[in-house]
Simulated assay, not measured.
Amino acid sequence: MPVSPSPSPSAQAARQAVADQLRDIRTGAGMKAIVLADRAGWDRTKVSKLEHAVRAASADDIATWCRICGAEDQAADLIAKAREADSMYLEWRRAHRTGLRRLQAWRQPLFEQTELMRVYCCNVVPGLFQTPAYATALLHAVTEFQGTPNDVDAAVQARLDRSHVIYKAGHRFSVVIEEEVLRHRIGDADTMAGQLGHLLAVMSLPAVSLGVIPFAGPARQIWPVPTFDVFDDKRVHIELLSATVTITAPTEVGVYVKAHTRLAEMAVYGATARGLITTAIDALD
């Protein structure tokens, strides 16, 4: 299947990375392209098209390629990367072209199916922990910035429906936020006070581990990175200003699991974290 040019440099680079890895597997096996094509029963131009990302490699193509080159152990990871390349980069303006509610509702089944969710937020309170007033102020700002249809009330309700998962059995949440999240003013002072008070409440839930990385902590083990969510060590969502990026390749998911572990080690919990939150509430006055 021919590959249409991607509007995203990131997605196009991901496609090329798959093609490059296929070539590396072939050359590492000491196999000429014509030999690979013959053994696979392909047209002799197919190998070149796959290696130059002119043609998208299917799961069957990758499995056959790896089997012939004696690299079957790399097939699963490469198949995941190929699938990811086609869906990894979704511009917010496309995702929100009919408003914000659709994406909130679309992701709800993923949240319901996830047993362990790891979250890192560097800028705003995680969606699962947002109050109606905070979510309304935030989504109004998003709508105005993106110029998308205003369905904020419906989007907020969809976000609240999704957040009910934190109260359901069979789910665990390991959440790390930067202290600056407590200080960024979203909405008015009453909105922020209510939101910070809600954080104190959700911290007591048995399924929730909430850590705060303080301004005045020791030297960082890892630099601040964009907000990301890890779903059962199988899928990662990364939030950029212009788009959301989805990662499913096991080796790359592992990078974010490792990052979350490092960030969690830098955070404070329990009474110390509560102290940072109450100090932020006091500062609103």
Results as ranks from 00 to 15, higher is better:
Q113N: 02
C66A: 09
V230W: 12
R23T: 03
A19W: 09
Q74A: 15
G211C: 02
G127Y: 10
V35M: 02
M203W: 11
F145M: 03
R220V: 15
D190Q: 15
G147P: 07
L103V: 00
T98E: 10
K32F: 00
R15I: 10
E112G: 07
S163R: 15
R15A: 06
W106K: 06
D151T: 01
A14D: 07
R44S: 05
F228V: 06
A207T: 11
A243H: 15
D285V: 10
L210W: 15
G187D: 09
R118K: 07
A267M: 06
G127S: 08
R159E: 13
G254D: 03
A135G: 05
S8H: 02
A155R: 09
V202M: 15
A207H: 09
A14G: 14
M192C: 05
K32N: 08
A33I: 03
M117C: 10
L128E: 13
R23K: 13
F173I: 12
A40Y: 14
G99A: 08
K46F: 07
R220E: 12
D229A: 09
L116M: 11
T136C: 02
I166E: 05
W223F: 03
R220T: 15
P224C: 02
A59T: 15
L241S: 14
L199T: 05
A14S: 11
I62T: 06
K49V: 01
A135P: 05
A201M: 06
E51L: 07
I213G: 06
Q12V: 01
A95R: 06
P218F: 10
T64H: 00
I34S: 05
T272A: 13
A259F: 11
A76F: 08
A53S: 10
V208P: 10
G194P: 05
E265A: 12
R235T: 11
V54E: 12
L241I: 14
L116Q: 14
W223N: 00
A207W: 13
S48R: 01
V255T: 05
V208T: 04
A29N: 06
I277G: 10
S87P: 04
D282F: 14
I281T: 05
T244F: 13
A154I: 08
H171I: 13
A201T: 11
V230N: 03
L78A: 10
L160H: 03
L263S: 02
A95C: 03
A33P: 12
V119P: 06
E239P: 00
T27E: 06
G217L: 11
L284P: 00
A243D: 11
R15K: 15
R44G: 02
T248W: 02
P9D: 11
L284M: 04
R55M: 11
K46E: 01
Q221T: 10
P250M: 12
L284Q: 01
I277S: 12
A249D: 14
A11W: 13
V255D: 12
